[in-house]
Amino acid sequence: MTGRGGWLRGYAVLYLLFLYAPIILLPIFAFNDSTIIAFPLSDFTTKWFTEIPNTPALVRSVQTSLIVAVTTAVLSTLLGICAARAGARYSFPFKTPVMGFIMLPLVLPEIIVAVSMLVVLMALDLPLGSWTVVLGHTLICTPFCIAILNSAFGNLDVSLEEAAFDLGESRWSTFRLITLPLVMPGIISALLISFTISLDEFIIAFFLTGTEPTLPVYLWGQLRFPQKIPVVMALGTILVALSVVLLTIAEIARRRGIARAGGKDTGGFL
């Protein structure tokens, strides 16, 4: 066993290096005092970071992205709660096809989602804007939320809710006092993950954005200008750090949830 584990471990380390290669380079170029993104490195600088707040278009795109991502997270989590609850607790006609259809965006190339929504918006002559991006993002984030919340609602013992109801609580107060606290870790994970997906999503935003681009759409435009790249690297570094913090919080929430339900950690997101 240990022999095989040995070369597998070596392979695993190499693979992690492959996975992390771009992310390791990111801060290196972010602090490098040169507009050419290549080795050898020049001097250390933090000027690319200080340039971020002085680029109004960038700041605006960050604001747009944050608004879009927060709205998307809330909407898709709410829709996810409805669907996951209905899926875990109730039976109704056409349950499997309806649930399957809601999960469909998970297996649809994003470009298809983007152009088909664009076609409808064009046909209806509706203006593009942040709200169209929110709708598109909510569509693709909801299946992720459902996947996360399914396990939260599925792990919930039905007799806990029955017990509360039996002890005199109403349906609503049962939900508030028992269900909600117990699925809260799942809700937090769903919010964070849909927020992260929306913040990073490019192709739908690219097609559906109006005059106010989201951050990835703005970055896409900047990648053509070499002199703008270091600022992008600096921003990317901040985003990576932010993502790691958010994901760590999500992971801790998930583990708490498992511990609270008295279960065993079997590992892993999604």
Partner: peptide, 28 residues
Amino acid sequence: ANRRPTNMVFQSYAIFPHLSVAENVAFG
């Protein structure tokens, strides 16, 4: 069920995992 003069001990006991023993007992 919440208006009936009956109470139930569930097979799984259905002890609320996020509440203390006293909070469980005081629930009703």
